[in-house]
Computed example of a mutant assay.
Amino acid sequence: MKTNIHFIVNPIAGKGKNELSEALLETYFPKDEYSVSIKKTEFVLHATSLTKASIDEGAQIIVACGGDGTINEVASSLVSTSVILGILPMGSGNGLASNLKIPKNLNKALNIIKSQNAIAIDTGTLNGEPFFSNTGVGFDAHVISDFEENTTRQLFSYVKSTLRTLKNYHYKNIVELKYNGTTELISPFLLFVSNSNEMGYKMSLTPRASLQDGLLDLVIVPELSHFKLFIFAILFLFKKQHWMKEVRFEQITSLEIKSQDNRILKTQKDGEFFVPKEPRIEIAIHPKSLNVCVQ
């Protein structure tokens, strides 16, 4: 019986012009052994509907070809199924792919898919919506909101969005946090929850996070002075943010964030801007709920 593999391609991810030809794929997946289908996304959330159609069509491996947003759309439909996720990193950040040591080199990434060596990884949910790398409330969400307004999605654009957000950011909202049996009130600069040890561009707030430990890594950064924000940014660049005493790290299985003034909290989910429908956010881990091709 032929192995049924579907490729969901985002043509405009990263630098754009992403192409996968049938001729190229046939050199890795010959027609006498594999049934291969290529589908291209045309709009936001199109990858989700294409993935669901591929599941109905009996795909055994569905390959997300794009950045973290595309991977999120494809993987969201594969959680708690037997269908295996493959990844061809074609985006700008590629945090999950990098964490899984899946290279941007197309030939090497295709060989990983051909090997069909799969592991089960943890996944997270934010108000029931899946995420795979990280989610955040506060500064990073505002950076992503600014970043998505750019026509190009490269590292320099991300740096510019970060600097603009730092200049204009005045976050004074008080939230109630519940985790590990504790409750606290805080006016946060950043609440960052990570399932993986990389955010993309080789940057990390949670270098010790693991996709297979059944835990989420929480970073709590309180409201800081401009000087301390500068120090935090410098430490972050050198992956030494833990040197700053104001920054706290916790490992959790669930987290509840509730706005005290019923304000809707801006969030990001796997590097995409996300606005919850209510002022309460519930985040949870789901151990080993997604099968992914790795080396």
Rank of each mutant, 00 (worst) to 15 (best):
A64E: 07
V36Q: 07
V74C: 08
L45M: 14
A59I: 00
T51G: 10
K52M: 13
C65N: 12
K39M: 02
E57S: 14
S37C: 12
T41I: 09
S54W: 02
G69Q: 12
S76G: 12
S54V: 01
I38T: 11
E42I: 06
G66Q: 08
I38F: 04
A75Y: 12
S49P: 01
E42Q: 14
A53T: 06
G58V: 03
V79M: 06
I62N: 04
S49E: 15
G69T: 11
L50Y: 04
T81C: 08
E33T: 11
S35N: 13
F29V: 01
E42S: 14
T81Y: 10
K52F: 00
A64P: 08
T48Q: 14
K52P: 00
I62Q: 04
V74A: 10
Q60H: 09
S76A: 10
Y34A: 10
T70F: 00
T51E: 02
K31M: 11
V44K: 15
D68W: 06
K40M: 13
P30V: 13
K39I: 01
T81S: 14
S37W: 05
A75Q: 12
G66E: 04
S37R: 11
S49M: 12
S77E: 15
T41Y: 13
F29H: 05
D32W: 04
V36C: 13
S37M: 12
L45W: 01
A47F: 01
D56Y: 01
G69S: 11
E57F: 00
N72T: 03
Q60K: 14
Q60C: 02
L78F: 10
L50Q: 04
D32L: 12
G66A: 11
T48Y: 08
H46D: 06
G69V: 00
N72A: 00
T51M: 04
A64N: 11
K52S: 11
T51Q: 09
H46I: 00
T70G: 06
S35G: 07
K39E: 03
L45R: 15
E42F: 04
S37Q: 13
K39T: 07
E42W: 04
K40Q: 14
E33W: 05
Y34T: 10
G58H: 09
E57M: 09
I61Q: 05
I62Y: 00
K39L: 09
V79L: 05
K40P: 03
K39H: 14
T81P: 05
A59V: 01
S37V: 15
I71N: 12
L78T: 07
V36D: 02
D68H: 06
G58W: 08
S76L: 07
S54K: 04
V44C: 12
I55Y: 04
D32R: 09
V36M: 08
I62P: 02
L45K: 15
V36T: 15
E42L: 09
T70R: 02
A59G: 02
V79T: 13
S49V: 12
E33A: 14
